[in-house]
Amino acid sequence: MSSTAAPETPKAKLTKADFQSDQDVRWCPGCGDYAILSAAQQVFAGLGIPRQNFVMVSGIGCSSRFPYYVNTYGFHTIHGRAPAVATGIKMANPELQVWLITGDGDALSIGGNHLMHALRRNVDLKILLFNNRIYGLTKGQYSPTSEVGKVTKSTPFGSLDHPVNPISLALACEATFVARTADIYQQHLQETLKAAAAHKGSVFIEILQNCIIFNDGAFKDVTDRAIRDDKQVLLEHGRPLIFGKGHDKGLRFNGLDVEVVQLGKDGVTEKDLIVHDAYAENQTLAYLLSRVENPVPMGLFRNVTRPSFEQRAHAQVDETIKKYGKGDLDKLLKGKETWTVN
């Protein structure tokens, strides 16, 4: 884990291998985490950021072992608290590139509160939520994203609680960058991570991911090759929302709802379709799209700019110094009223 090698001579270009640690990766064979790790290492190498400025922060769960496998600074923290730990890291040193790896249980159940506040504050954290709709590390209990009626070890007669939609939640928390991708779409995944790295502020990416042991086929009705063109719609800024194998279906407003329409049928043309606007300050469209379940929207829901929390915190320190001068400890100790004994 430690770097015992001689100091690195600065390389013109880092490679994916530079981001691989010496630790054996211990996820189950076939786990979606491998693909995400690989994509992230690939993207990190191309960002032009020195390796020592990266910090991987995670909570608890299968996905949260991620930092051990990335040869940067890393912190495998405690269940649900990664956004809080990461906020402290980022506030202490805003120069760091902080990535936060979490899962559906870690982020949405035990850590729901911290996620909410990290997002609304717009702390410059790249939050990757690996959503496999199950608790894997504890060997298969239902999670806050499991479908109602899920039969698991803790719910042998089916789960009762309604799942939370991670994208809707992130938007409600005022997140400035919200996207969805999947473990099996290596290219889309990498593009999304690249866009995330460029965003200054809270990034929230839901990564649909399979758990081969406890929830195999978690998203097969969305991502299976045979059906996926009809079950997904790609969100592209400025483009009408068209999907389907034959590129013949689209999404259209119907009052406050979004409906699927057949292009060419009943006179429907591209002009009738919703044109995606990822940069809209108003997040209503992004929210409406987040509610669409069939097809599942993939890609960037929202990307807006707002000063990040840690930037503002340090700016406030700087402004205070400018206004009152650098703190004088002797003056502080004396306070306003003193008396002297001779």
Binding site: T87, K90, M91, N113, A313, H314
Partner: peptide, 22 residues
Amino acid sequence: VTFQAEDEIAAAAATVGAAFAG
């Protein structure tokens, strides 16, 4: 740098993070 956290847990956890970062 003062941080009014969302709860006691976050206040402590952020403090651990800040210590890690120096």
